[in-house]
Deep mutational scan, measured.
Amino acid sequence: MAASAHGSVWGPLRLGIPGLCCRRPPLGLYARMRRLPGPEVSGRSVAAASGPGAWGTDHYCLELLRKRDYEGYLCSLLLPAESRSSVFALRAFNVELAQVKDSVSEKTIGLMRMQFWKKTVEDIYCDNPPHQPVAIELWKAVKRHNLTKRWLMKIVDEREKNLDDKAYRNIKELENYAENTQSSLLYLTLEILGIKDLHADHAASHIGKAQGIVTCLRATPYHGSRRKVFLPMDICMLHGVSQEDFLRRNQDKNVRDVIYDIASQAHLHLKHARSFHKTVPVKAFPAFLQTVSLEDFLKKIQRVDFDIFHPSLQQKNTLLPLYLYIQSWRKTY
């Protein structure tokens, strides 16, 4: 089996927390979720979201995140109150960019949308954001926290390059993509939290790379249903696996070995980020709550012996909000 052949990389499970039942964490995340308004986002309300009498641009960002990046939404709820709305805006910006690729039928249209967001970032730093909910909220975040323009532009530029429907040539190319998107998002989150620390940035770099790799793995069944495969070609070739094997949902050992190798790289990034947690300011830990969902996925895929098409991998963990709150309460990542 794939797991038994390579099992030495995987460390002990961390979500089991001995003695936790003896201490009762304060009510927090679930209460916040219940208090949030929840009407559906419609095209009509989106168009009017920044106008008078609408929910408001902040509510639009929150709803977009809740629907399109639920794990990011849950993590954002546990940030300090003064930072929450800015991170909602930042993550909503990322969602807007991420959904361009799947929402257009022609690359030219995707490039036009990316050009809109490039100009939007430029206009935000000229205090002239367009009348668009996410743009307005992002402008507020930039003004409030003096966010670095370079990180925002890196996210747009990398998403634009990724409009080509090509597999990553190697794991390094996937890591570079993750660094310029997910890690950049974390650098900006640290700025919102008021953290300027080399060790925190180092952790953000590795956690962002782990996030990018896990996202690529999780999306494999969806991409396969659209006749697309984006997994690193070098690892596929190493194990003699073709793109057609993934399109046919082949579950042979060599296919699972490909998934094992890729998942192991995410695991190593996560492990390395945690190896120097004592040197990272505690104030930075809330920015890294996504490690909970990353670890949850890596454990699940290990349990199914790296069968990327196993139905259990597509099921939401209903206990994730609780695990996130516990992680926040324990002040760790």
Rank of each mutant, 00 (worst) to 15 (best):
I109Q: 09
R68L: 07
D164F: 13
S225D: 11
H59N: 08
S264P: 00
L138H: 02
G224E: 07
D307A: 03
R256Y: 03
L111F: 15
T120Q: 08
F285H: 11
E244I: 03
R218G: 04
F288R: 00
P52R: 15
I136H: 14
W151M: 06
N94Y: 06
C75S: 10
L62Q: 11
L294D: 04
K107N: 11
S242F: 03
L313H: 02
L147Y: 02
K253M: 15
R249G: 13
A266T: 02
M112N: 14
A219Q: 05
L64W: 10
Y222N: 09
E137W: 03
R169C: 10
K278I: 06
S225C: 10
A92K: 01
Y70M: 09
I326P: 00
E175H: 01
I326Y: 14
L313I: 11
R159A: 05
N170K: 06
R113Y: 05
F306E: 00
L270A: 02
R274W: 04
K209W: 01
C236Y: 01
P286V: 09
N128P: 03
Q211H: 12
L138Q: 00
G224K: 12
N128D: 11
P130S: 10
I155P: 02
L62R: 09
L77M: 07
D201R: 05
I326C: 13
L313W: 05
F93T: 01
E295M: 10
Q99R: 10
L322C: 10
L294R: 02
L64M: 09
A284H: 00
K283S: 14
V292A: 09
Q132W: 13
Q315M: 14
N254K: 03
S105E: 14
R68W: 08
H206V: 01
I124V: 11
D261M: 08
N176M: 11
Q211W: 13
F288K: 01
L320C: 03
A47C: 15
M237A: 15
G208S: 01
L217I: 08
N170V: 04
V255P: 04
K140P: 01
D165M: 10
L65K: 02
L62M: 08
A200E: 02
S76W: 04
L79M: 13
L79N: 10
K154E: 06
M114E: 03
I326N: 06
V282H: 09
A135N: 00
N180R: 10
S225F: 15
N94K: 04
N254I: 11
Y187A: 02
Q182I: 14
R248L: 06
S105N: 14
T189M: 14
S103W: 12
M233N: 05
I259K: 02
L247T: 06
M153D: 09
S225Q: 14
Y73F: 15
K143A: 08
P232E: 00
T57N: 15
Y70H: 15
T181M: 05
L188G: 05
Q243K: 03
K172P: 10
S86I: 01
I195R: 04
L231Y: 01
T332Y: 14
T189D: 02
K140Y: 04
L268P: 01
A204F: 02
F88N: 11
A92N: 03
Y325G: 06
R218C: 05
L247M: 11
K283G: 13
P232W: 02
D58I: 08
L147W: 01
L62G: 08
W117I: 04
D305L: 01
D305K: 07
V104C: 15
R91H: 09
L247S: 04
L186E: 01
D102E: 14
L186W: 00
V214R: 02
A203V: 11
S103C: 13
H223I: 07
H272W: 15
Y325S: 07
F230N: 12
V280T: 05
H239F: 02
I155M: 10
R248D: 04
K209T: 04
K161L: 12
E122F: 06
N146V: 07
V229S: 13
V258S: 04
L97R: 00
N170I: 01
Y60R: 06
Q99S: 12
R144Q: 12
L247R: 07
I136S: 07
A89D: 02
L217R: 01
A200L: 00
Y60D: 07
A210L: 01
A54Q: 13
D252V: 13
T181G: 02
H267C: 14
L298H: 03
R144G: 06
Y323M: 11
G110H: 10
Q265P: 02
A210V: 04
Y125I: 03
S242H: 04
P133R: 08
G224S: 13
L74R: 02
A178Y: 02
N317G: 09
R159F: 08
D234L: 02
H310E: 06
F306Q: 00
A81R: 15
H199E: 07
K101A: 14
A49R: 15
H202I: 04
D234A: 03
L78D: 01
G240I: 02
W151F: 07
Q315S: 10
H267P: 04
A178D: 00
K161Q: 11
L163Y: 13
E295A: 09
K107I: 13
Y323K: 11
D69P: 01
P129Q: 08
L289R: 06
Y168G: 01
S225L: 14
T291F: 01
L78R: 03
K140Q: 07
D164T: 15
R274K: 06
R144N: 08
W329E: 03
E295Q: 11
W151V: 08
K154Q: 09
L298R: 03
N128Q: 14
N254L: 09
G110P: 07
E122W: 07
Q327F: 05
Q99K: 07
F285Q: 12
T181I: 10
A167H: 12
M114I: 13
P130L: 08
Q251K: 15
K143R: 10
G208D: 02
Y168P: 14
A284E: 00
F306M: 03
R84C: 06
P129G: 02
K107A: 14
Y60K: 06
Q314Y: 11
Y73W: 15
H239Y: 10
E158M: 10
P133D: 06
I301Q: 00
L163K: 04
Y70G: 05
W55G: 15
P321K: 00
T181F: 01
L270Y: 01
Y323N: 15
E191H: 06
A219K: 05
L238A: 12
K149M: 11
A89M: 03
R66V: 06
H131E: 13
V87T: 11
A92I: 03
L111H: 14
K283W: 06
H310L: 01
I124M: 07
N162F: 07
K300L: 09
G110N: 09
V100Q: 11
F276M: 12
S312A: 14
L152Q: 01
L74G: 01
Y187I: 04
E175M: 03
Y60E: 07
V304L: 11
K196I: 05
K154V: 05
L322K: 01
L174T: 00
S85K: 11
K300N: 12
K101P: 14
S45F: 12
L188N: 05
E173K: 02
Y73P: 01
L247E: 03
D305E: 08
A219P: 01
L78M: 09
E63I: 05
E244A: 04
L79Y: 15
G53H: 11
N128L: 13
L174G: 00
L238V: 12
K228V: 12
L78K: 03
P286S: 09
D245S: 11
F309E: 01
S183P: 02
A49H: 15
K172M: 10
W117N: 00
F88W: 14
Y70A: 08
L294H: 04
P80G: 10
A81Q: 15
D305A: 06
D157R: 10
L111V: 13
V282T: 11
Y333K: 01
Q211L: 15
H277G: 15
R169E: 07
D245F: 06
T220P: 01
L79G: 09
D245N: 06
A98Y: 05
K154W: 04
W139I: 02
E106H: 12
Q182D: 12
S83R: 14
D257C: 08
L111P: 15
N170A: 06
A287Q: 01
A287F: 00
I301D: 01
I136D: 02
A210P: 00
G110M: 08
Y177P: 00
D201Y: 04
L289W: 07
G194D: 08
P130N: 08
L74D: 00
S264A: 15
K331L: 12
C75V: 13
G240W: 03
L319N: 10
H199I: 11
H277Q: 13
I171G: 02
R303M: 08
T120H: 06
R256C: 11
G72D: 06
L268I: 11
L324Y: 11
K107L: 12
T181R: 02
K271C: 13
S103Y: 14
L190R: 01
V142E: 03
